[in-house]
Each structure stands twice: as C-alpha cells, then as structure tokens.
C-alpha cells in the first residue's frame, strides 16, 4: 500500500497534468479550488479521475469542506 506522502504526490501529479498547471506550482496545503481555478463540475471531474486512478469509490460528501490536497490525500488513503 502506498504511503500518504506517495498518495499525495500522485494526486498532485494527476491534478497538474489534467488541469495543465506546472507540478512545481502545486503544494500539499494549497486550496485546490484556487490553485487549479476549478468550479464544482470540474471538482467532480477531478474526483472521478482520482477514483479511476486509485481504483476506489470516494463519496462526494466526504469532500464537503475539503479544499487542500493534503486532506484530500488523507481521505483517499483511508480507502486504499
């Protein structure tokens, strides 16, 4: 099983690649809505990509109030 740091790195790489943001501009405690400039529909798109990537189901209500990559990584880690 990957460590939380590895999971976090995979999330950052996936987000950077899909939303075309340089990886070095993203960090764990960033507000991903602001850093990626995404709206609610794009957030669902990110959620679906993460579910496919990690082969998990992540209920969207678990992301209520989550806006930074580190917390997101913790939520995903709990389902790996």
């Amino acid at each position: 099983m990957p460590t939380t740091d590895q999971t976090l790195e995979e999330i950052l790489s996936l987000a950077a690649s899909h939303f075309k943001v340089p990886r070095e501009k993203l960090s764990a405690d960033d507000d991903f809505f602001k850093t990626l400039g995404i709206d609610s529909l794009q957030t669902l798109d990110l959620l679906t990509r993460l579910e496919h990537h990690f082969q998990i189901e992540l209920p969207d209500y678990e992301l209520q109030g989550v806006s930074d990559f580190r917390t997101l990584a913790n939520r995903i880690q709990a389902r790996l």
């Binding site: 579910e51 209920p59 969207d60 209500y61």
Partner: peptide
C-alpha cells in the same frame, strides 16, 4: 439515502 454521486464504472 446517501445522495452520493457514483461513476460510470460503478
């Protein structure tokens, strides 16, 4: 009852 969204694969 959960109101959660699920993906196409599911």
């Amino acid at each position: 009852l959960t109101g959660r969204s699920v993906n196409a694969t599911k």
